[in-house]
Amino acid sequence: MVEFFKRAYAFPFVAGTWTWLAVSGFFVYFFFCISGFKESRARSFIYFQGRVLQTAVLFVSAFHKKIIKGTPIKNPSILVANHPSTYDTFVFFDFGIKNIVYVAKNWPFQIPFYGKIIKEAGYINTEGKTADEIISQAKERLKKGLHIGIFPEGTRSGTEIGRFRSLAFKMSIETGAEIVPFAIKGLGEMLAPKQIWAKKADIEYKQLEKISPDRFCMEAGDLKMAKAVKEIIVEELNKGL
């Protein structure tokens, strides 16, 4: 019974989230059509939209939400995190990081209105591209002073962390940009993949120490770096909340 009320309590806010994404995207899309799409303006909108979502939904869906910031990120870097839930899409915004573009699969780009906005904001669609093409685009974004956000698992993993693909780490080695790992705790319990009803849970986001690609410039260094970074995140997750 308690479980039912917890779920029933969260549901309207989950529904509200998607309504918010769709409605705000709809109106802003037409504003951009009239005023012209500008990358920085599109990113500001996504940042604002993400912050509202994080604040509103997690305020009601989380018992406690804790954000542990680390050393300020000065240089354009590659930000990676485990990917337990849809809600972690906006996790980096909670650290006040605005100048970021994500590397994502095709589906977010297919969301009406919103997809067009993230494309104009400079988000990188991996669909049909080779790793070299994706890295080439990422290099351009890094040169502009933007951070690159990637979830190396590639898909939402729930409470079990999945395999880390090498793309983010190959990107780091080839561009020289540092990797900044983040550990996301609790979101897998709150809204796991394929779960419609949100549960209440404790949430913690933690920025970990940055990692230089220099010590991975070797044969299959990208795979070794992927494993090393996953170990660091897993170690943090195992500490619990």
């Binding site: 991996t126 049909g128 590639g154 090498s166 299959a220 795979l223």
Partner: peptide
């Protein structure tokens, strides 16, 4: 697996 895993597969098999 997907196209990005194929990149990793090549590296693994090369090794």
């Amino acid at each position: 697996l997907d196209s990005l895993d194929a990149v990793d597969m090549v590296i693994v098999l090369e090794q």
